[in-house]
Amino acid sequence: MDTVMSITAYGDGCEKAVNMADREINRLDRLLSIEKSSSEVLLLNKEKQLELSNDTLKLVSRAREVSIITEGAFDITTEPLTRAWGFYSELDNRVPSEQEIQDALRSVGFQHINISGNKVTLDESTSIDLGGIAKGYASAKAADILKKNGVTSALISLGGNVRTVGKKPDGSFWTVGIADPNDSSKQIGMVSVSDSAVVTSGGYQRFFEEKGHIYHHIINQKTGYPADSGLKSVTVISSDDTLADALSTALFVMGLDKSSELYSKNSELFSAVLVTEDNNIYITENLKNSFSSERNFEVIFD
């Protein structure tokens, strides 16, 4: 899905399983990626009304659920904003005018999407982009295929999204490092996981500089500008891949305090590691026994 992918698997029939998983990921990429001409998302954005296939429909519904629990912070309708800032092509990066942003904001928000059965209707100038949740869905599907084919231990890395199946062949937990937003060749810490998705979102992953200011790709759906909530990166760990993928972006937009609030109401659903602008690290309490780091960090209680 426009990035590097790698699958490492152990178990019977793993070569066949990996090939199937690989094909499924490519299929989903062609279906969901807004940049592929075969994409259903592209078609929906063009026609504004479409009967969606199962996978796409599931994703749109899931996106709505996450949008609700994050009070709108996760939003798949930010496509016009992302386009205005030129993040769909490296050559287009620019700072849009206040007017352009206001115009784009008018079509942003889940209220502009109507779901009826498998028919989805978008308001006139609304467009969606499933990029913030599709990778999670794809890795979940890939993991399912691996498991169905007898794989008991696997590690999937999909463009920076990590998914683990079972434990390592020797019975120990997989150790997944969390990239340092200031230097992604280093890490701020690592988590020991099994059967979980580990997804990181951060402004440092995609940004451009204009006149001395840095503008990154995670747009705040209320202001229309790159999210400025005091966070440099958010990593979400969960057995639910789509949730992890969506929440990593949502928590980044929400900021430390709102993220803590969301965690206190949903602590059995996910864990998170947040790095703030002043390079402080915070982890949710349920990670206390699986997170380790050479640096200092604080715990968020629920």
Partner: peptide
């Protein structure tokens, strides 16, 4: 790619794209 000289990890989240 660069190797993480320090800790032994199996994968890294957030480092590509």
């Amino acid at each position: 790619k660069f190797e993480d000289a320090s800790e032994k990890i199996d994968a890294k989240a957030g480092a590509a794209g």
